[in-house]
Design a protein around this nucleic acid. Sequence first.
RNA 1: GGCCUGUUGGUGAAGUGGUUAACACAUCACCCUCUCAAGGUGACAUUCAUGGGUUCAAGUCCCAUACAGGCUACCA
Length: 549
Amino acid sequence: MTNEQLADLIFPNITKTIEDYEKIYPKRDLKEGAIVTRYAPSPTGFVHIGALLASFTGSIFAKQTNGVFYLRIEDTDTKRTVENGISKIIDGLNEFGVTFDEGPINETETIGNYGPYIQSERKEIYQAFVKHLIKQGKAYPCFCSQEEINNIRKEQELNKARIGYYGNYAKCRNLSNDEVARRIKNNEPYIIRLRSNGDYNKKIICHDEIRGDIVFPENDLDIVINKADGLPTYHFAHLVDDYLMRTTHIIRSDEWISSLPLHYQLFQMFGFKVPKYAHIAPLAKIDEQTNGMRKLSKRKDPECAMSFYHELGIPYEAVRIYLATITSSGFEEWYLQNPCNKIEDYKFQFKKIGKSPALFDVEKLKNISRNYISRLKANDLYENISLYLKQYDKEFYEIFTKNKDYSTNILNIEREQKKPRKDIGCYKDVKNEIWYMYDELFIDLNYKWQKINDISEIKLILKNYIDNYYNESDDKDTWFNKMKQLTNNLGYCSDMKEYKLNPTKYKGSIADISMVLRVALTTKDMTPDLYEIMKILGKNKIIERFNKI
RNA sequence: GGCCUGUUGGUGAAGUGGUUAACACAUCACCCUCUCAAGGUGACAUUCAUGGGUUCAAGUCCCAUACAGGCUACCA
């Protein structure tokens, strides 16, 4: 029996050839240097910070070169598939600004001409490629059971030999075609393995865009390319998909580095041009238990899930800035110089991507977020916060959106100026910062009086102020001058320098007087500019709040 | 066991044979200030995992060792 006949016996229904597929998926018409890359998750429905990092990186490179960034769902392991996993991933990524030019857009719809983009729907394509290999004698069926494989392994461990299905250990490698045909007709279960042409004693140089050249022994393992369920393994799907989808750059996490010799071999066996590879390091954190570094883990670390940042209300742009900061050296410096530019305006380079795992630093993320939020216009901030509250705090959402102008004014305190206020790190903080501005929440009060805490003195100050000094239409200087007059008239010191020199000469300072007003109006001892707050509250509310005391 | 990758301050890092080892976050101090958030000024690595070697000169090149991670599946 010839290889040809054997191939037809195994795949009788596969009629298309790889040449046919090359015509269906022609070379992309793109400019020189355009990067075609992809994000290729399993449909687990879970968006990991590492996944965001990988997809973010890919999308940046594609965008910068006017290339293509597509989504491919790797569901050849049917156990990993989760209900609605695809749309969960797409939505989760969209929330952080990652979008795709091609691929599934939800559970049922797809855009792009290089699909299907879901591997389980590409079975016959893979099989055509497997068939091609069998015809050429470059792949063969293997009938070894799990038990036999285990025995081979034990034998190898005993002999201190390399583990794996290769050379003389590859039992089914030299079965005759007639023998193979007989066993197939006999319904014996089998899988298809690659007949590796590699020599372990020879070296192969693989190039990684981030790490440079890496020297490996050639691959001589007869790896499985087609599983018992008819679906390919990752390696073979990678070859077929990335060839047919005309991917130029494989950007993936660095656990794949070791497979590089195999992947080079696969492309070369078909005579395809080997794509470029860029392996990115994982994100890590310090393990409190062992004090060692470890990969962020889905189970142990809440900050691993993107939903964590969404619930916190970290603007997605801030997350992206942070990711760019830790991935690409030089970005942070550039961004500090050009805070108003778009991330995409920075020229990212593979060589500038870090080789070692980065520790994830939530503090730094918050700092970036704080700075980002401080630069937003009050109107935009209002919209963002409304959106956030709508999803995570319905009650405050109602109050916050009841009077848009009022809320926007609050947000605008010390904003839209050269050195804006930076007190909001994430949208979850907002309520805690401004709740006292709303009468609905100005109940069950706990006044944080400071130095002046004698209630009769407080009442005296408030009464004096409202009767003799307060005027709603005063500008800031006038307001402050009146504060000084009040201070002096009550026997306090209105000049902080003077007060610091002779603190014992006075009952207290203008700081103490201001604090009384501040606490009376807000209950808090730390607030933004008092004048601004009073202006927004307005006369009625001020009097009302004084009267409560 | 074998094969790969990585290791610069508390953190992210710049650095490709000659720099006082950038910069950012965090921390601390002081200044400014009606409080806070900021902002300003300054402090914070005699040393680049360790040990050898090459060199007039090494974080940078070479060799060992240690530690961390990955791969070695009909998982991706």
